[in-house]
């Protein structure tokens, strides 16, 4: 029986709306306004302001990713052990918040973090020093962790729940205590989940322009902000495309790094 024709609509669609558009980015990135070939748009990343933005983006998204792992791993572990209703948990953590607009949710942190906001009121009443993190890189990190944490929890949770409980029992049976069992068996087996969580958090954090815009004030520019401005304000699509290509190179590098690490830990499953 022939099901080949069934892939045609999707094939056409993805060529038209995924592959050709990406080629256009490359076309614009490697040409100037007259359409002549140039590397200037790529090399532009070395300009001080762009380097600064890229460096800051990498730093903030790196820190956010680490925090996400530290928060998400214990959560995933607990949820696997607590035998709660999986589906309702996933809905509660992923789907339901999305029905409250993500811009509004992020903006709400402004209200919470303001000098006289809720969090500081609580801190003052506890005689603790108030936080002044709004419009600083710390607020951006918070926004990133807030928005992308679920994308770290889900893959880790998935890979943990796939582990056969008898494999854990086997480790205990062979004499490992709970800490040894965790580091020698559970953690290595969940590594693929951690890795895919890292890409799912690092990439959107690296490329965001919304979170920095909403929580960082207008002074902090990430690489995403620079690119966005080239398209919506300065209208220099060639430069914007060139910087996007650089960004994609970083994304590809980070994905390659994770796949290599993955291979070391996992062998060739999946």
């Amino acid at each position: 029986m022939n099901r080949k024709w069934m892939s045609t609509p999707y094939l056409v669609w993805s060529i038209a709306f995924i592959i050709i558009p990406l080629c256009m980015v490359f076309y614009y990135g490697f040409t100037d306004k007259t359409g002549a070939f140039t590397l200037a748009n790529i090399i532009a990343i070395t300009m001080e302001e762009h380097m600064k933005a890229l460096w800051l983006s990498m730093l903030l998204s790196f820190i956010s990713t680490i925090i996400c792992i530290l928060l998400a791993y214990p959560l995933a572990l607990i949820l696997c052990n607590l035998s709660v209703n999986q589906n309702s948990f996933l809905v509660l953590i992923f789907i339901l918040p999305m029905w409250m607009n993500f811009l509004l949710r992020t903006l709400a942190w402004q209200t919470l973090l303001e000098k006289t906001g809720v969090i500081n009121s609580i801190l003052t009443s506890l005689h603790l020093p108030p936080l002044t993190i709004i419009n600083t890189p710390y607020a951006i990190i918070l926004g990133m962790v807030y928005n992308f944490l679920p994308f770290m929890v889900l893959p880790i949770y998935n890979s943990l729940s796939k582990i056969d409980p008898n494999v854990v029992n086997a480790a205990r049976d062979l004499g490992a205590n709970s800490i040894q069992t965790f580091f020698k068996v559970i953690f290595p087996l969940s590594l693929p989940g951690v890795i895919s969580g890292i890409t799912m958090v690092f990439v959107p954090a690296l490329t965001t322009f919304v979170i920095s815009n909403l929580l960082g004030g207008s002074k902090i520019l990430l690489i995403g902000n620079v690119i966005e401005q080239e398209f919506t304000q300065t209208n220099n699509w060639n430069l914007g495309s060139g910087l996007s290509i650089v960004l994609m190179i970083f994304i590809i590098i980070s994905i390659i790094i994770s796949t290599i690490t993955d291979k070391d830990g996992e062998g060739s499953s999946l």
Binding site: F17, P21, V203, T208, S244, M248, I255
Partner: peptide, 14 residues
């Protein structure tokens, strides 16, 4: 896996 901003830009250019 691609950045949303790049997907957005690429479609805009198209």
């Amino acid at each position: 896996v691609n950045a949303e901003i790049v997907t957005g830009i690429s479609l805009m250019l198209l």
